[in-house]
Simulated scan of single mutants.
Amino acid sequence: MKAVQREVLFVNLYEYSFAALEGGSLSLERYRNQPIMIVNTASECGFTPQYASLQRMYLDYRQSGLVVLGIPCNDFGEQEPGTEEEISRLVREEYGVTFPMTAKYSIIGPRTHPLFRDMVEQLGPDILPRWNFHKYLFNRRGQLVEHWPSATQPDDPGLLHEVARNLQSWSL
C-alpha cells in the first residue's frame, strides 16, 4: 500500500474513544505518544488465525511502546455475529489475546464509528477496509502512516519494518 501523506490527515487518533470489549470506556488518549496498530477483527473469518500473529507482535513490541488494538466488526460477511462475551472468550481462550479489544463496532455504513467516518472525510473512501483484519498503523503523534489489506499477515516483513521504524521514533 502507498504511504499515507501525513500532511493531509488531520485526524488525531488520541481524540477518539471506544467501549472496551469487557466493559467500560477505552479512550485512546491513554496511549498518547505510542504507535498504535488498529485492526478490524472477526471471529468467523478465514483471517481469524491472524489473532495469533497479532498477539506475537504485541508481545514482541509492547515493551518498546506498540499498542495493538482489535475492533470486532460484523460489517463484512457477518463474520462477527457473537456477543462481546463470546468474542472475548474466543480471543482469550483460542488465541491468548492480551492486547486491548473494543466492543463490536461498525466501520462502514450508516453507524460507522467516528474515527473511520473522519478518516473517510479526510482521505476518501479508499481508506476503508474491504474485509476483516485490515491493519492501520498510527505513529506516536496519532497520525495514520500506513495501512495494509486483510491478506497482509501481521508478520509480513514490510509491515514489521514500518512498525519498527515508528517504534524507533518513539520516546518516553
Rank of each mutant, 00 (worst) to 15 (best):
L9D: 11
T102Q: 02
E85C: 07
G77W: 15
A42M: 08
T48A: 09
E93F: 15
P110L: 13
N74V: 10
Q79V: 02
E22H: 11
K2S: 06
K135M: 02
N12G: 07
S43A: 13
L9M: 14
A20M: 11
Q143M: 08
F47P: 00
L54S: 03
P125C: 03
L54M: 07
T83I: 11
Y14C: 00
I71Q: 02
G23A: 12
T41C: 12
L160D: 11
N166L: 04
G109T: 04
R30E: 08
I38T: 03
I127E: 03
Q34I: 01
Q122G: 09
P125L: 10
N139Y: 06
E44R: 14
A164T: 06
K104F: 05
S53P: 04
L167G: 03
L144F: 07
V145P: 00
P81N: 15
N74P: 10
D75S: 06
P114D: 02
G109C: 11
L54R: 00
D155G: 01
T41D: 05
A20G: 10
G142T: 01
I108Y: 07
G24V: 12
G109F: 08
P81K: 15
G70Y: 05
K2H: 08
E29T: 09
A19V: 04
N33T: 12
R62C: 07
Y95K: 05
N74T: 07
V145W: 04
Q55V: 04
D60C: 13
T152V: 14
F10K: 14
R130E: 09
A20W: 13
Q34S: 08
L172C: 13
A19I: 05
G77E: 14
L90F: 13
N33F: 11
F116Y: 14
D155Q: 12
V120Q: 09
H134W: 05
Q50A: 11
G77I: 05
L167Y: 04
R89Q: 12
E15Y: 11
D75P: 08
R89S: 12
L159M: 12
D75E: 10
H134R: 13
N132I: 03
V68F: 06
E29A: 06
Y105G: 01
Q122K: 09
W170I: 04
V8N: 15
L26H: 01
Q122S: 03
H161Y: 15
G142K: 01
L21D: 03
V39S: 04
E29P: 00
N132L: 02
A20P: 13
D156I: 08
E15G: 11
R32M: 06
D118G: 13
Q122C: 05
G24R: 14
L9S: 15
Y51E: 00
E121D: 11
Q143P: 00
L115Q: 01
R117A: 03
C73Q: 08
S27D: 13
D75A: 03
T48Q: 01
H113A: 03
A151L: 10
P129N: 08
G158F: 14
E94Y: 09
M119P: 01
M1Q: 06
L69Q: 04
E93H: 14
L159K: 07
R32E: 04
H161Q: 12
L54D: 00
E15F: 07
